[in-house]
Simulated assay, not measured.
Amino acid sequence: MKLSRKFLLIGGLAAVLALSACGQAANKNGNNNTSGNGEAASVGKKVNYQIIGIDPGAGIMKATDEAIKQYDLKDWKLVEGSSAAMTAMLDKSIKKKEPIIITGWTPHWMFSKYDLKFLDDPKKVYGDAEEIHTIARKGLKEKQPVAYEFLNRFEWTSDEMGEIMSAIQDGKDPEAAAKEWADSHGDRVDSWTKDLTPVNGEQLKLSYVAWDSEIASTNLLKYVLESKLGYKVTALQVEAGPMWTGVASGDVDAMAAAWLPLTHADYWAKYKDQVEDLGANMTGVRTGLVVPAYVDIKSIEDLNK
């Protein structure tokens, strides 16, 4: 009886080892794979091979079209929409812990609210870090020297911008959020306005695109120009094309929303001789494809596996 039990135990152990070896062999040959290429394929199916984008005129949309070509993502489609629609879909997916792939950029409040990551871009389709530049119409320096000097001095960080964006996202009116930030960062505002003589109600036009970052920066500029420097400012929310055209034609005085060298590359190439670049008001910004951190892919290349 004891001998029979011994043989049974040995036989059972042998069977377990044999099954384990078969499983290892299957994985070695590419069968039953639950990570790597399999994960990428699973993500593609779950998101219906869609990349959720924003408005069709945005530079990041053109770059994403190019990324689809460069990475040979034949089955993938870029979905046009708006920044608000994109972030709403992101929020819905994260609440359900479902995968989603979006066109993203920093600075943006969504990186503070959610745990997100950029997909690696080894082909550099989205380029390296970008800058946000302030662009003025020709002749602004002569016609409005106070405004020109203020805009020329204006520069800040993504963390500073993030404070205003977060306040707006939490429900605060953009103008109120900008005022609150300026009033609590007096030293920063003073560095932009020091020794500038206020004007008496002179008109000034700014334009911007409906990105959260540009809503924050333009409302801040409007508040400082009006409360500290005496201007009457009109802020025009438009698409990227009209924003550049307005400054180039002189119908708009300035904008602080030029993403260079990649996102607005076409507009810069077309209008660079008709506008004046006052330089970067923010450095180290980035664009690309973004996923929630729990999505187990690392690179845009993975989408083609």
Results as ranks from 00 to 15, higher is better:
L8N: 08
A15Y: 08
A18K: 02
A18G: 14
S20K: 06
A21V: 13
G23L: 14
Q24C: 13
N27Q: 13
N27S: 13
N29W: 10
N29H: 09
G30T: 04
E39H: 06
E39P: 01
E39A: 15
S42Q: 12
K45P: 11
I54P: 02
A58S: 10
G59W: 05
M61L: 08
E66V: 09
K69V: 08
Y71G: 08
Y71H: 09
D72W: 01
W76Q: 11
M89V: 04
I94C: 05
K95I: 02
I101W: 02
T103A: 15
G104W: 05
W105F: 14
W109M: 05
K113T: 07
K117E: 02
D121S: 04
P122V: 03
E131M: 09
E131D: 11
T134V: 15
R153M: 12
F154G: 07
E155A: 15
G162C: 02
G162M: 14
M165E: 07
S166V: 10
D170V: 01
P174I: 01
H185I: 02
D187H: 07
D187T: 14
R188I: 15
V199G: 03
Q203R: 14
S207N: 13
Y208M: 11
D212F: 10
A216F: 04
N219H: 12
N219W: 02
L220F: 13
K222S: 13
Y223S: 08
K232N: 15
K232Y: 00
L236E: 15
G241V: 09
G246W: 03
D251L: 10
A254K: 00
A256Q: 12
T263A: 13
K270S: 07
K270T: 14
D273I: 09
G279C: 11
G288V: 05
V295P: 11
